[in-house]
Design a binder for these strands. Structure first.
Lengths: 335, 335
DNA sequence: AACCCTGTGTACAACGTTGGAACAACGTTG
DNA sequence: CAACGTTGTTCCAACGTTGTACACAGGGTT
């Protein structure tokens, strides 16, 4: 093991507790003593043993971030912000992946593989509100990106319904008449899919337009590709709102491969504002959630939960978003 | 705090150590006793306190993965595999980002923010071999994706030189005559850039072809876009090997925006095989490192370092890769 | 009958840390 | 100058776990 307080204490000629006091910035330490101790600390390159500290005071300084998959760009970008926001609180972040698997989501909720973490930021897909409410583990919890209505935990997300409605309105505003939605899910009850679908429906209803909804299993490019390919055979939409950018990029590939043009033949919009969509050809119209704000709020909520043992009511916080209009929904040019 | 061994022991009417023995699968426990204890364990929903266990054993069960940025797809994809591979060892993974900043790389090397972790998988960019060799921290270390020749630590990577040469040979094999390299770096001494540049040079020299090298600051799409835009004005290459896929996708966007065609006018290849390149239009020819193998080897090496206190010589391991030929270097079709 | 195994269980100490009580040294005050 | 509060430091215990040492029973061997 490395150097302990004891080693430092011996070198500095003081007691272990005095060294501890210096390390923890306790006020009443004589300047001379403090200097001695600090020199010894530096000489021995002391690092606190967090296992011991944690054992003593029940804190680890580590939080967990559980999400479906790290290699989905949206979650990767979000993770970066969460790690940065946590760093400001001097927290470290352990990342766990659920792959959207119900069993693994249950395990996460039940405790991060038996490790004690101070808190958990969780982006669930498969698990339902009832199970969330019934959890026994009492680790501080913040839910991310999903609305468990009147749920048992704090929650941050953008207003998915409104965002979806905005995008759909934008597509309708282009003069398109056959606007399809791509990304509904049969299974996922608690994900964002139902919310985005609701937003799409609101907009379509408001304009008295017929709905076309394509369903997918997951939210990957491959699913977007497959669903769009099918859609091109069944119906021939002239605009498609994909429930996330990965689906949209897969759909874009399908449309272009089939010889049709974007936005000439089909206007296309996504949601998430992942970087790929800013460099695709054409660039992708999308909704940009303020990921930094999402991460920051999540960490702040978690901080409050961890500090305030008091069980106040669960908070529901909305983060901002912006509609980013790009080439994939530009007015058809004569070229 | 949760239930401890003590609570279980009281309920089962045995000593704390006996419960510990049951939990740890110690052989010599009478079946009757074991049954009693196991029932008590279940009744109280016992979870071992890992802080205490770690304090006792001097292990944390947590490793750190330090990389430039999580939101670069290559690193996100790699992280997924590292987390999965670590999970098989029952390790958790803390992720730290350096942004390629020298100072932050130094800090990481010096200890993961004062936390004790069992090991560190580190993908450095800025830091040099000398500093790596001089580090004082004795946490197990495995370097990822970079060759510090005769370095002080275990190391996994693909053969960057050969991979770069393969790609360049492929471009030359298409009959292209003005093959440019995009992605050299002035600063980074220890990154993979010099290796990839060397591979390009070898291939070009072997065919007696003139070199064109474009330099970038970083490895993002924006850098690829800017460098390619500049390249289109200066020279007019008919093939470009970008040192990673992000650069290639940025370059692709620049080429297409300027009205030229890929691969018709310019053939384009990258390296990394990120998912975006499989859905771009055209799809991107690239080198696919076996990321799963990379991650697995890194974790295995770390495991050996952590277990074997013995300081054997640093290992250098190569992971495999494949050239993925896609549309961006297809033979020009008449269309 | 004395012996030594083997199997099963317990008691104790220790990992490194910190909260709190105890205490020593000091200057201030009546 | 004695009583007192303040400041600085030490001592002790405890967080939950596990390695070591040991106690004790029962059974087989001399």
């Amino acid at each position: 093991m490395g150097t302990s307080l004891r080693d430092v204490a011996v070198l500095a000629g003081v007691s272990v507790k005095t060294v501890s006091n210096v390390v923890n910035g306790y006020a009443h330490v004589a300047p001379a003593t403090r200097a001695k101790v600090e020199e010894a600390l530096a000489r021995l390159d002391y690092r606190p043993n967090l296992s011991a500290r944690n054992l003593r005071q029940g804190r680890t300084g580590v939080i967990a971030l559980a999400l479906p998959e790290l290699d989905a760009p949206y979650f990767a970008e979000l993770s970066r912000f969460v790690i940065d926001a946590a760093a400001e609180r001097r927290w470290l972040v352990i990342i766990e992946q659920t792959d959207g698997d119900l069993e693994r989501e249950r395990q996460i909720l039940d405790g991060v593989r038996d490790h004690r973490v101070d808190g958990l930021i969780f982006s669930p897909i498969a698990i339902g509100a009832d199970e969330l409410a019934a959890r026994t583990d009492d680790t501080a919890l913040v839910l991310l990106g999903e609305r468990i209505h009147d749920g048992p935990a704090d929650h941050v997300a953008i207003d998915n319904v409104r965002a979806a409605r905005d995008v759909t309105e934008h597509l309708i505003g282009l003069g398109r008449t056959r606007v399809a939605a791509l990304g509904a899910q049969d299974s996922s009850i608690s994900g964002t899919a139902p919310l985005r679908l609701a937003g799409y429906r609101q907009a379509m209803a408001a304009h008295g337009m017929p709905e076309t909804v394509a369903t997918v299993e997951r939210y990957h490019r491959a699913d977007g590709f497959a669903a769009m390919t099918a859609l091109l055979e069944r119906e021939r939409p002239d605009a498609v709102f994909c429930f996330n950018d990965l689906l949209a990029l897969g759909a874009m590939r399908a449309i272009l491969s089939s010889g049709l043009r974007v936005p000439g033949d089909i206007a296309l919009a996504g949601l998430d504002d992942i970087e790929d969509g800013r460099y695709s050809t054409p660039t992708l119209t999308t909704v940009a959630p303020d990921k930094n704000e999402l991460a920051r709020i999540a960490v702040d909520l978690l901080k409050r939960r961890i500090d305030g043992r008091a069980g106040y009511a669960p908070q529901e916080v909305r983060a901002g978003y912006r509609l980013m209009v790009r080439e994939s929904t530009a007015a058809p040019s004569p070229s």
